[in-house]
C-alpha cells in the first residue's frame, strides 16, 4: 500500500522527499509547526523519531536533539499521541522511527497496534536487523504496517535479497559508512550501490544520510525514488527557526509546473 502510494506520487514528481524530525525537539509545538511547514512545502512522506537515550546510529545533531527532547520530558505516549495528531491532520504517510528498546518495553505487538490506531503507516528501527526481528515482523504484519529495513554499501547481494524480502513500503538505503548527518561524496560508487539495491527489490528506494541541498537531490534524480532529508532540516530549524523550513524544502526541487 505504502509502495503504491509513493509510486502514484512519483507520477507527479520524479524524486520524492522524505523528511525526518525528532519529536519534542525543540518542543512539541515546534515539531507540529515543522511538520506543517514540511507538508506545505510538498514533502511526500515523513519519519517521526521517538527519542531514545542510546541512539547509536545517529550522529551528533540528531543525538543532541534526542537528548534535548528527553530532557524536556518527552514520553513515548506523548510521541505516539503526536504521531496520531499529525496523521489525522495531514494527508501524507508518516513512519515512526526509533530504537528497538522503545518498542520492546512497550510490548512489540501493543506498539504496532497503537501505531495502526494512530494512523501511522510503518516504522524504521535502525538497531533491529531482520535476524532479530521475528516478533516485530509478525506484529507489523498483523496490523498491516510497513516494516522498513535498511541497506548499506557493505550489505552483500545475498543479504540484500534476504532483507528486501521482509521489507514493505520502501527500502532505506544508507549512502555510505558512518552515522547520520555527515557529508557524503556522491560518486560512481553510489551508482553501482544503488544499482545493486535496485536489482534486489521493486520497492521504492529512499537514499539517506547526508542529503543536504538541491545539488544532492538533483544527483539522485533517476537513481533513487526518495531523497531523505534528516539532519539538515534539524540544522535549518536550529539556525533559522521554524520559518526557515518551508523555503529550505521548496528550494530542494524545481517548482511543480502548473
Amino acid at each position: 500500500m505504502l509502495a503504491e502510494t509513493l509510486r502514484a506520487k512519483q507520477r507527479e514528481r520524479e524524486i520524492l522527499l522524505m523528511t525526518h524530525i525528532v519529536m519534542g525537539y525543540p518542543s512539541f509545538d515546534d515539531s507540529l509547526r515543522v511538520v506543517e511547514a514540511m507538508v506545505e512545502a510538498g514533502v511526500e512522506i515523513m519519519e517521526l523519531q521517538i527519542p531514545f537515550s542510546e541512539p547509536i546510529a545517529d550522529g551528533p545533531v540528531i543525538l543532541h536533539a534526542n537528548q534535548r527532547s528527553l530532557q524536556a520530558g518527552s514520553s513515548v505516549e506523548r510521541c505516539l499521541a503526536f504521531g496520531e495528531e499529525v496523521a489525522k491532520r495531514f494527508d501524507i504517510p508518516f513512519l515512526l522511527m526509533s530504537y528497538y528498546n522503545i518498542l520492546f518495553k512497550y510490548g512489540v505487538d501493543a506498539f504496532a497496534k497503537r501505531m495502526a490506531e494512530a494512523g501511522l503507516v510503518g516504522a524504521i528501527v535502525p538497531d533491529l536487523p531482520p535476524e532479530e526481528a521475528d516478533e516485530y515482523l509478525a506484529a507489523m504484519a498483523a496490523h498491516d504496517l510497513a516494516p522498513v529495513f535498511i541497506l548499506s554499501p557493505s550489505t552483500t547481494d545475498e543479504r540484500m535479497a534476504r532483507i528486501t524480502r521482509v521489507t514493505k513500503g520502501l527500502v532505506y538505503c544508507v549512502a555510505r559508512k558512518g552515522v547520520t548527518g555527515q557529508d557524503t561524496s556522491f560518486s560512481d560508487d553510489l551508482d553501482s550501490y544503488l544499482a545493486r539495491c535496485r536489482a534486489a527489490t521493486d520497492l521504492p528506494l529512499a537514499l539517506g544520510f547526508g542529503v543536504k541541498d538541491r545539488a544532492d537531490v538533483d544527483f539522485l534524480r533517476g537513481r533513487a525514488d526518495l531523497a531523505v532529508i534528516g539532519t539538515q532540516t534539524i540544522r535549518v530549524v536550529e539556525e533559522q527557526g521554524v520559518e526557515g523550513v518551508k523555503p529550505f524544502i521548496e528550494g530542494l526541487r524545481p517548482p511543480l509546473s502548473a
Binding site: I56, A57, Y100, P126, D127, L128, P129, E131, E132, F149, I150, L151, S152, S154, T155, T156, R159, I163, V174, K177, G178
Partner: peptide, 12 residues
C-alpha cells in the same frame, strides 16, 4: 544476548 546492530556494521 543477540546482535542488535545497525546494518552498516553487520559486515564488520
Amino acid at each position: 544476548g543477540g546482535s542488535f546492530i545497525p546494518e552498516i556494521l553487520v559486515a564488520t
